[in-house]
Design a protein around this nucleic acid. Sequence first.
DNA 1: GCTCAATAATTTCCTTCGTCAAGTATTGAT
DNA 2: ATCAATACTTGACGAAGGAAATTATTGAGC
Lengths: 384, 384
Amino acid sequence: MFTEADNVAPAMTAVLTAVLTEGPLSRVGLARRLGLSSAAVTKAARPLIEQGYLQELAATERSGPGAGRPASPLAIRADREFFVGVKITADELIGVVCDLGAQVRASAHRPLPYPDPEHVLTDLGHLVDDLLDGPGDYRARTRRLGLAVSGDVDRATGLVRYSPFLHWHDVPLLDLAEKITGLTVTVENDVKALTTAEHWFGEGVGAESFALVTVGTGIGCGLVVNGRIVSGSHGVAGEIGHIGVDVSGPVCHCGGRGCVEAIAGTHAIVGRARERSGRPDLSFDDAVALARGGDQRVGAVFAEAGNAIGCGIAAVANLVGPSRIVVSGEGLAAYDLFETHIRAGFERQAFGAATDCPLSIRPLPFEEWARGAATVSIQAFVAS
Amino acid sequence: MFTEADNVAPAMTAVLTAVLTEGPLSRVGLARRLGLSSAAVTKAARPLIEQGYLQELAATERSGPGAGRPASPLAIRADREFFVGVKITADELIGVVCDLGAQVRASAHRPLPYPDPEHVLTDLGHLVDDLLDGPGDYRARTRRLGLAVSGDVDRATGLVRYSPFLHWHDVPLLDLAEKITGLTVTVENDVKALTTAEHWFGEGVGAESFALVTVGTGIGCGLVVNGRIVSGSHGVAGEIGHIGVDVSGPVCHCGGRGCVEAIAGTHAIVGRARERSGRPDLSFDDAVALARGGDQRVGAVFAEAGNAIGCGIAAVANLVGPSRIVVSGEGLAAYDLFETHIRAGFERQAFGAATDCPLSIRPLPFEEWARGAATVSIQAFVAS
DNA sequence: GCTCAATAATTTCCTTCGTCAAGTATTGAT
DNA sequence: ATCAATACTTGACGAAGGAAATTATTGAGC
């Protein structure tokens, strides 16, 4: 009988990750999926069960020939540990508490009058306290916090190199947040965090390569290739919004011409709707209302926008060939106006078998960004 | 004293790869670069030296403070082993013999009157014999052959699923070629092979991510992301030629509109040059001559083509952020007409720091494709 | 020349981590 | 009851690499 350590740290991470992302699996099933021997899985599962992260389920109905010892699937004990995720925008903090299975248990937000680091950190501390000391008694079982920020973020060090929306330069967010909250903090770029969430817990589960496109003021894209998130050597990656799809299109604020964002970004849509309708006071919601009401001129703006997005997505499909693509973001609140045009643009411009790439177009609750942040901290925990 | 195996297979591959791609390195230097202990490198280097793949160089000049035992760099013994690489096109076989350091030692080509698998295999056998039994006496030290084919190739099994140019469907090229030549064969897509060559032995050395763009009849792109070549889930990747850069551009044979290839592919350039010049018999070379001679209308065709290519390259830079990009291919024979426009299109459309991505624009000898094939077999050997 | 600090390479254990093969456990079918 | 089939467990073993002591080789200072 052994009691002491059996040295199975890597296999433990692999097993926990697989059960987290793919649901209950028997030891033998895990062994097959992970390319490990069943012996290794048995050894790795033991401490995970002892420490309360996994539990054995009762055997379910048989599948194969019918004989043999029934498998006992291992499932996550989601309430074993909780994780806080916070998305930091220029005017608001959005926070959630997730369980180990990435289900949202509580959420809260907090306006951000001053987006300078000092104020943000103070408010972050209050928000986390509200979440953890509110109903649910999460404090005792929460040790980690994930933060999602737009811009150039170094996940390894938790340094925010540059965030245009927040006007931050070289803010050591990880250190500051750990000091304020006492939790172990992970910092990640917001689009990457959301992509990670979708890759581990959403539609990207099991995909070797995967893309998530966000449509809003900006148009961004998170990429997973060969199972790893793409970061870009010069700090740039996933800038689908600045792919040029129309050489004679409008000039973009980036200096390019016919960028997807210059045609389909929220600002661009409003601007073009104002022009075409002749109403210089139009808001985005007004434009949506007009288009839904059947206004041809404003409808065309949305059609062109959808088309441009579809072209950009096709560029992703043609270049990296992800096994699936999810399109989301607050801009998709009006996705009834977009969807067919996005699909049309994609199908026209996707090459050969890239057309087979399944496209999910659906709005996500804004809270999802905070869940992405929590997901990154779950990842960090599992890898630790 | 030990004599028997020391179980260092993975480290041997790592050491050999590092010395191959980065040149002579001391054991300590290798340890630092590879994240291994110097003990591990010592153990891995021993069998490689014994088997004649590496040799110790005399210590060179010192670098640091000046004291201490001088490092003895390990270098490849390039003539220890040779590799044949053959590129199969629709009308020709191009073959080379490379040494372990991927230097071309001999080359040959052979017209291919009938591109059906049977004839190709017979001619391949003759070509390989010519190369190995010609001057240089490579036969005895050659055990591997790499083949590069355009189209959808499964490198793992060596099956050519579909090659449009050759009209091949599901040809088990690896098995057939091993039977004919008696060598261990690796089969890879031609663009991926060339990308690999550039990544291991060319300008992509040391790059975590890297892109190679080929300009010719088709416009293709090989991608290395996170150190691994990108394959695409649906068999599609690197199809930069079918990214749409002009929503109101010409319709492409793929059904898209304003594809890079429909503007900058060799056929497209000839077609447009014929239209604009009013000379329906123009060849590509004629068009080049006219443009070089100062013909404004034909010159504009090349300018538009270069611009479209630049836009496509910018899309690559914006999406995956490679640390460098090489542009090549037979279309670049006229690269004096293209280069400035490619750069202009790239710089206009590359977003933010993506502009920093160095762009090498240069024609490569056609033999380089065959060298790519040889490189893939070197890779396979090193990993074995 | 001798000694010492500095750096490189080697050697000897030792830890980690996983497999293998032989068990045990639990079922349905005969 | 027996048997085949499947799942899981166990203990011995092997592969791979690391830590630290040891040896090797140099330049600098005396």
